[in-house]
Simulated scan of single mutants.
Amino acid sequence: MTTSTEITLGVLALQGAFREHIEYFQKVIESHPQEYSKFTFTFIEVKTEDQLRRCDSLVIPGGESTSISLIAERTNLLQPLMDYVKSENPIWGTCAGLIFLSKQLKNGRVGQKLLGGLNVEVTRNAFGRQLDSFESPLDFSSFIPDCHAFPTVFIRAPVITELLHDGPTESKSESDSIFYSQNNYNNKAPIEVLHSLKNHGKIDHELIVAVRQGHILGTSFHPELATDDYRFHKWYIDEFVVKSKNKSTDI
Rank of each mutant, 00 (worst) to 15 (best):
M1S: 13
T3I: 14
S4F: 05
S4I: 09
E6M: 04
I7F: 03
T8L: 05
Y24W: 02
F25E: 08
E30H: 08
F43G: 02
K47T: 14
T48V: 06
E49V: 08
D50H: 13
L52Y: 06
R53D: 13
G62N: 04
S67C: 14
E73R: 15
L77W: 01
L78T: 06
Q79K: 14
P80K: 12
V85K: 12
S87C: 08
S87L: 09
N89P: 02
P90T: 08
P90E: 08
A96W: 04
G97H: 04
L101G: 00
Q104P: 02
R109E: 14
N119P: 07
R124N: 05
N125K: 10
A126I: 07
F127H: 07
L131R: 07
S142P: 05
F143E: 05
P145H: 11
A149M: 09
F150I: 01
F154E: 00
R156N: 05
I160K: 13
I160N: 10
D166C: 06
G167S: 04
T169S: 11
F179W: 11
Q182E: 15
N184D: 15
Y185V: 07
N186W: 12
A189T: 03
A189C: 04
I191L: 12
I191V: 14
H195Y: 13
S196L: 03
L197M: 13
K198S: 15
N199F: 02
H200A: 05
G214D: 08
G218I: 01
G218F: 04
E224D: 07
L225C: 07
W235L: 00
D238E: 11
K243F: 00
T249K: 14
D250S: 14
I251H: 12
